[in-house]
Design a protein around this nucleic acid. Sequence first.
DNA 1: TATTATTGCGTAATCGATTACACAATATAT
DNA 2: ATATATTGTGTAATCGATTACGCAATAATA
Lengths: 356, 356
Amino acid sequence: MAFKVNLQPLMKGKTTIYDIAKKLGITAATVSRALNDNSRISKATKKLVLETAKEMNYEPNKLALALKKGKSNNVGVIVPYINRNFFSSVIRGIEEELYPKGYNVIISQSHESEEREKEIVNNLMNAQVEGILMSLSKSTNKTAHFNQVLSKNIPLIFFDRSLNIAGVSSVTIDDFQGSYKATQHLIGQGCKRVAHMTVGKELGIYRQRFDGYKQALEDNDLPFDDNLVVELKSDIEEGKQAAQKLMNLQDPPDAIFSSTDHGALGAIKWLQGNGYSIPDDVCVVGFSNEPFTQFMELSISSIDQSPLEMGKMSAKVFLEQIKDKKVKIEKKVVLSPKLIIRDSSSKHIVPNKKAN
Amino acid sequence: MAFKVNLQPLMKGKTTIYDIAKKLGITAATVSRALNDNSRISKATKKLVLETAKEMNYEPNKLALALKKGKSNNVGVIVPYINRNFFSSVIRGIEEELYPKGYNVIISQSHESEEREKEIVNNLMNAQVEGILMSLSKSTNKTAHFNQVLSKNIPLIFFDRSLNIAGVSSVTIDDFQGSYKATQHLIGQGCKRVAHMTVGKELGIYRQRFDGYKQALEDNDLPFDDNLVVELKSDIEEGKQAAQKLMNLQDPPDAIFSSTDHGALGAIKWLQGNGYSIPDDVCVVGFSNEPFTQFMELSISSIDQSPLEMGKMSAKVFLEQIKDKKVKIEKKVVLSPKLIIRDSSSKHIVPNKKAN
DNA sequence: TATTATTGCGTAATCGATTACACAATATAT
DNA sequence: ATATATTGTGTAATCGATTACGCAATAATA
């Protein structure tokens, strides 16, 4: 313990510009300017300060800087749950784009709760984040908690799950198109009765996927049958039940397009367990391109949402908005989903087997 | 635009204690004390201030607070990549434990690069985080970049991938034990020649898994055969190649214990594609309990690392350390891994089929 | 050489909080 | 009634930076 006395000067907080100033017999202002390469400081002084700073291991205190400049260099990211492949991949994209620019990413989970989302937004605003990039919680109906964000002119960017609010940019995929493609593909495989497994309509994305499905049927002169649409959560068990319900219809489907990969997986498991052959009896396509879809012995066709690009794009939109905050750019980026055809829907020819 | 003039007072930053003070004709100090329920402030004043604060939507500026108190209420989390199920689940655990305590979680990805890890640590220190919770990058050899953290008395906690540094707490699983359990299980299934697929020895965890494997063989009087140990990356393709190499030995294995689930998956795919029956010809066990292992038609036995608990535990250790920083507690928490027995290694009886 | 520009640096305010210290005005004790 | 304690609030310093302003000393220009 006695040693500590000796270590104190080292241990005690970081060196500040005042420490450097004292050591050199100049003022902190001069040090600050020297460090910032101000033109009014002589080369000699700059060199001296820079050297001393390095020598003393000086690093600016970001908090002080943040307070002074009103910029924290932090952005907040809110997702329902971080340990879901889609969201963590988006976050990876965001982090990779923002890290080189000196931003730190603060993440929080809304747990699909509007209440918690409100709390988090509030919290992030108090933490003076410079922007909020988020995916709405399922249960979010009101948007009042975003007013403070917008009125303070803090960029707010929705990704994936979006809501149409003036002044809010968004980066989404074209869920309608993805769904349309999937359905079209199933029809192209010769399927005549395509069922659809959807998720509660709280979220616009599922509504749009439903619409895309319906439109594809219509465009192919196939009748829309309400019995072929089942609503469930993104859950394997429910997927199984849904498949059972569908196959027990008098006129069962010969294809299932699920709005979630987990639903598709459940359906496949039930079908396989009950003597159905995939894709010969029933073709199945999921949505999201979760990692497991490609690992299965019978790999599952799905729609890729390119989460990494979505994250990077969200970050880019943020960077644009922060650049000049006077202009309020409300950008709506819509990424194109990719249909990944795999075993579960490759009846005859395999158009692009190489797709991973 | 003309309207803006009217909005300015609302839009211009948050209300500060000075705004409240001015409105009430008192000083900011009094406001501050009233808000902090200081005993020297009269009830009347407190009530007045509290009401006015609410009315004016006052929220404390965390940056100012942080600067004053030297506490940012932020903790840094560093993982190699955030979109890996294990790591994102740990982070979920951390966030859920720390959020209620008012901490924000800043995440960064090291990309398995020591250089980047150094940068990030440095950056987090400048951002005045109150603690760093991290999993080491694969390539980290030197530990000099942690000195600044320790000398400033900032809690540093390693999870999963740890290194023995004085003053650093860690939360890991018992990799040796997990590996031992898996191997023991395979032997219990009647397997006599258990192969092991490992990953480069840069990381202690893989070395320990190897040791556990070896010990289990020894304890069961089975010979250790160097030919049965293959080194690969956590990669499906390499898993396939490794399986091929193993099965082409004069004396091929009747079981494979892989240090990664992806390796196990690759092996299974190759085995299935080459006429081997699993688990009858070859039993396979992976490590990590990645979600896909339970989804497969032939579900894969694996070792669960309880990432959520690991995250929560890491957060708890951090909270303990921050509580009184005078005492330097160096806590080493070792969680017990769980063997999850599934199809890929259930030769005869299924001990606990219910395990998810 | 006198005048103006430029260079180099110090002074002090500022960002938004907290808090040690001081000092009246009451309240309590003697 | 006087001495002491308590209550309630203001003043000003502080955290670690940035920056408008001021003022010499030197350089450039007339």
